[in-house]
Design a binder for these strands. Sequence first.
DNA 1: GTGAAAGCGCTAACAG
DNA 2: CTGTTAGCGCTTTCAC
Lengths: 365, 365
Amino acid sequence: MSIDSSRDAVAGRGVGVGPGAGTPVLPAPSLRGRVTMQQVAAEAGVSISTVSKVINGRYGVSSETVDHVSRVIDRLGYEASLVARSLRNHRTNVIGVLVMDFEPFSTEVLKGVADAIHGSGYELIAYSAGGHVEAREGWERRSLSRLMGSLVDGAVLVTPTVTDVQADGPVVAVDPHTGPSRLPSVAADNLEGARLGVAHLLGLGHTRIGMITGRADLLSAQQREQGYREALAAAGLPVDETLMSSGGFEPELARSAARELLARPEPPTAVFAANDLSALATLEVAAELGLDVPGRLSVMGFDNIPESALADPSLTTVQQPIRRMGEEATTMLLSLIAGEELTEPHRTLATSAVVRGSTAPPRPA
Amino acid sequence: MSIDSSRDAVAGRGVGVGPGAGTPVLPAPSLRGRVTMQQVAAEAGVSISTVSKVINGRYGVSSETVDHVSRVIDRLGYEASLVARSLRNHRTNVIGVLVMDFEPFSTEVLKGVADAIHGSGYELIAYSAGGHVEAREGWERRSLSRLMGSLVDGAVLVTPTVTDVQADGPVVAVDPHTGPSRLPSVAADNLEGARLGVAHLLGLGHTRIGMITGRADLLSAQQREQGYREALAAAGLPVDETLMSSGGFEPELARSAARELLARPEPPTAVFAANDLSALATLEVAAELGLDVPGRLSVMGFDNIPESALADPSLTTVQQPIRRMGEEATTMLLSLIAGEELTEPHRTLATSAVVRGSTAPPRPA
DNA sequence: GTGAAAGCGCTAACAG
DNA sequence: CTGTTAGCGCTTTCAC
């Protein structure tokens, strides 16, 4: 029982032993390395193309051979290499989610994409260039180039800053920072969301509402600021520019901005931050200053990332339906891949206020 | 200015025009499809191998040529295909995170992996076979076979049910359901965690504590049940088997289990669920039944997925350091890839109770 | 210093 | 019904 089958199993190209050349030998030799079609073919005593046909269910193979080869495949635990197959085929049956980094927002989108893809028969690959600093600039184009047209049939691009990419295949952007472009996109209603947020603050009775704005070059930030201004205007309140400060969507900058605002002679009684990260930073600053939230200061965010519920006090914020945005984008993408025309290339989803513990009526003076 | 450069740019193999054959022509022709090295070579008037050498910084190319080719690469926006490169090279510089599905737990692990990978120079690919039902069985082996040894240099396997996989490359399992095997692994201390959780409930004064158990075939589920039994025993309380029901780690099943438990003549005053998803389901059922939580019923989960903080009431739970588990696994994986020996192939991380709003002392009868 | 050619694992013509 | 052949886009000897 010590017949050495490895000679055949490992042999070079196109061994022509022929099927039924003998009784099956030792189970799964698998010397080392991944099992390749080559090895299956050798082990089964057929040609590589026959194995390929069996795997892909192509016609023109006797059911005997199919059975035999299938058995060998099972025994060897063979599974086609995604890479080799992708290189050969134009179609891969894989959807890509391209992100700059895996953080709360993008992973939430990812969940939405996964939800939408269930039962579609597609596989899902999420890719991040690794977040190294050099890779931050233009990651969208780079990632698209590396995966699109070979590994994936289409891609969802999460919060791209650059949207004038020329992808060779279907691409849908989620929350593009520069606004709708030629790329189909899904975004939340930032303008209305900001209005809602500020309206909540106004409804509590606040009249001195400061804002920590986002990155000036991003449309989402501009829209949130615009919503703030409109809500104030609608309430007949003037916009006090000294009550606005830029947080650039970044915790560090936001902290400075919050300090500045709260150090004013007449500080605001409420702060509306352009995103949750900035709001959370404001909470920290308030704690530093010994300012009670929400007793002395109300703080409102935007995004509703999971972390905002964990803050102390928990953050009142404007919620974006992040997960649903991922679902929408995927639905659009699948249509695109199916060759359909998009009736509505830019979808905007509604936002809503989530009231938690960081807002309350202003303390009577 | 209408010189048609597409003839060269599109021409077949190895155009031998030679560098400096004329002034640069029209910008980025890019007729269609992704830009390939072929096109760069043609456009630059050099051979494919020269382009390859330039890209990979190999010696033996004049600095003139390097400059020229680099410029063409930039202009065309060329980026090497991950797939083609993977097929050729053994090393890809990509780490894979293989999951059955992208749900709260696995995405949390993913964040941890991403954290650990920052600055390592690796790229990250997360892969899910799509969660179709047929794919559920043996997804670990299948995914590993499809990606390993070609697309990725190593992989983190999240909550695999099968761990006797023979991967051809470094693999680390996170929270393997069947317990430590030959595969290096990182897991939380399920036994101790369950003890802690039940101890919290006992500390509040509960004596009728039900449990919604997990999937009977999984070690993690068994350990959590074991912890529950031990904690009860330690408090001198008998285990009432009628107060236990299986939720299989799945929301749907958990809902039924919760209904069953709460419909008992003498229902429990507290429920310990084997995972947060089951606890969340229990919360829903309690709401349906008009049962006040935590007034009438205390509910405790296990995992501390982000969603648990968002529930109403927020869920008291046993926290696993999920993100850190991803980090640990990645550190181990990188060592493995670097060819180092693991001093500690199986790491167990501590758990802790996170008290939120879903637990309170039992209402005096 | 540069290019031709082989081949990674796979599929799709096309012959036999 | 089965095998041979030609690549997919890339890297790497090895000639020139």
